[in-house]
Design a protein around this nucleic acid. Sequence first.
DNA 1: CTTCACAGGTCAATGCTGTTGTCATAAGCT
DNA 2: AGCTTATGACAACAGCATTGACCTGTGAAG
Lengths: 237, 237
Amino acid sequence: MTERVVPPARRRRRRPTKQGVVLSEELIVATALRLISEHGAEALTVRRLGHALGADPSSLYRYFRNADDLMLAVADEMIGRVLREWRPGGDWRADLRDLGLRMHAGALSHPQATVLSAYRVTGRVHEIGAVEAILGVLRGAGFPDAEAVRIYHAFIDTTLGFAALDAGNAALPRAAREAEQRVWRETYAGLPEETHPHIAATVPLLAASMRGSAYPTALDMLLAAAAARLARVTREP
Amino acid sequence: MTERVVPPARRRRRRPTKQGVVLSEELIVATALRLISEHGAEALTVRRLGHALGADPSSLYRYFRNADDLMLAVADEMIGRVLREWRPGGDWRADLRDLGLRMHAGALSHPQATVLSAYRVTGRVHEIGAVEAILGVLRGAGFPDAEAVRIYHAFIDTTLGFAALDAGNAALPRAAREAEQRVWRETYAGLPEETHPHIAATVPLLAASMRGSAYPTALDMLLAAAAARLARVTREP
DNA sequence: CTTCACAGGTCAATGCTGTTGTCATAAGCT
DNA sequence: AGCTTATGACAACAGCATTGACCTGTGAAG
């Protein structure tokens, strides 16, 4: 049996589809991303993607082993777009802060795709590039290997976790999102001081805070803790 | 047109299915939870749930408007179970650590439900109780209101973010999860030192770390940063 | 004790979904 | 010019959530 998917390196022919489109891995991924951001995550089906490309759905299986494989390629492309614009400046804490904020923002610009891919390990070029870059920043800063790996893991998963959370919220249908805003302004604001003293005392602050993401706060706290560890480690090797 | 779903209050008849099972909302939710933990998240389909209950799949639509409605009922039951077991002991840092770990573990025990519900604001009793409790712990520890709210927000969203992330991974079909393990052991382990020095230098540590969740690490770093802030604030009011 | 409305279980059908075996054809190498 | 084979297309399959129509027996009312 010949393999259905031919590795990109061995591809030779660029045969157009009946509708005249020349398929490629890049075109498929780009179209998938467009489909997701235009019509929502549930719009991404093999059939619809084939239709949007002007190709038979089964043709996509010449490029990806299955739908999950395609999803990973989409996720990796998103990482790549963020990484391509990040320029580390030499200050580890500022660099990681910048990268984290960029990844979070990048994820939120395609919330539907983020919801489907934030928790995936792609093993593809861009993801590998990100791992190498972050580890490089941490090791370059003087973190011992074990500590660098621990902090890398906490950093990347905090970032991806917030990305998934905030993207999930952003991807909610309009009505549901507005209903949640109302919960803070009405349900929580109306709780009596006798039964819920702490909420009653802080509800204006609370409602204001919950409107935005806590990612910057969490990121800064994470980096502050990392800096404290680094100071302790470098003082007594 | 008569409504398919009859509100629980108006239910009267407990007619057994062909296989002699008397259905109820509670039985269906409990069976769904059992199905998820016994056979994995992907085992929860309307067809399989119907089969496990000994009823026609379409019967479930007499109790839930659709599959998502059923999932939310399952998620709601989970929240109740976690909060019912948490007992704060007076040490703010230990209490928050305990609650965070419990919430994370609870979410992971039913990943499918978590994926669909982690980013939602319910405004229901258990959620309100959690907000009040966490704010109480922080204010009781001496955090000023603004600081308490900031840390509350970072704490709860870090926890929910990791819950979503790790649950998303746990909810993956068996094959996909094993494929991701393989990526760390093979793809990352095989990268040459020349092009990826930092990964090559740390790959055993990396592969070991990525097997588990970084939540405990991230949580401890968050709490450490919070403690540092508290020390600074109480020193100079 | 009978009647009868209707809750609720079942069946069959619909239109999705991902996926694959098979075939046809044109691209590009020799 | 001819051959190989990459790659697009077609048709079919199993499994998915969901729904309209049907039918049965429960439980309350008279």
